[in-house]
Amino acid sequence: MQINRTEVIKNLDRFKMVIILLLMIIVMSFASDVFLSGRNIMNVVRQISVNMILAVGMTFVIMTGGIDLSVGSILAVSGVVASSLLKNGSVDSILLVTIIASIVGGLLGLVNGLSIAKLKVPPFISTLAMMQIARGIAYLLSNGRPIVDLPKRFLIIGQEAFMGLPIMVIMMIVVVAIGYVLLQRTRFGRYVYYIGGNEEAARVSGVNVSRILILVYVLAGICAGFAGVILSSRINSGQPQAGLTYELYAIAAVVIGGTSLNGGIGSIGGTIIGAIIIGLIRNSMNLLNVSPFNQMVVLGVVILLAVILDMQSSKRMLKS
């Protein structure tokens, strides 16, 4: 009986964010008559794509009990790399550029992973350092200037649609799907849960903890690199200051999605909801012409409330 009740509460908690999301949608559809228009929905989906991709990578990291503050900067590096390769004509293929930029992201993530798993530097510090290093690399590579005049073909990713769906949204859906399968359906994902749940138990049970940790940060780096290509194509330039504070939106999406900062609990589904909630809030406030200062306050309050709600429910679960 007691256990059933725990399960019920758990399910309610899972629904909680969905309910909040639905409430937001209902309220907004009355507050603004364009909110539910096809075009606005498409806008929102496009606007959340980059954050969603970052958040998928971040979900894995936070699930192990870590954090990655460097994804915004890694995104800038990969955007600059992709743009300069295309601009100076050294690489022609859009696919190849995307792959190279994602690999660059993955390599920076590898440095994070090695320092965290092998040198035992706390994730917060490792990725804080990488945040600076990568930002510096982005400025160095671009000489501090945006890289513009990119080939028109490149803009396909960020600006064209396929069967009515923007390409970047399709790419986001693919990343989310891969993330879901990886976390929920593969051994790797299960090991991530184990490490977040109890790293020592996982180690004793024969899980190669450091390898999994390294892979997790590589994955976050690849996601950031991939997002960097998409953002560059979207804004038609490689910007060294792109992605400033994006790590915070990604972390917020993951946390709002119910992933525990202690690791071991969470899901890609939750992260999807979290990213949508953040995207909707930002969109709604623009539709309602909320002043710039109020927007910041509102977003901060929402993040705080989400975390408080989450803590309340886990406390309730512990007490029962």
Partner: peptide, 27 residues
């Protein structure tokens, strides 16, 4: 060192032998 308390019983029981339930890494 023994359990992931916040994970399910099933997941805990398979902790050591995940490989046996996976093909091409899929569970």
């Amino acid at each position: 060192e023994g359990l992931c308390l916040i994970r399910s019983i099933k997941e805990n029981i398979s902790m050591v032998t995940m490989k046996d339930y996976c093909r091409l890494s899929l569970i």
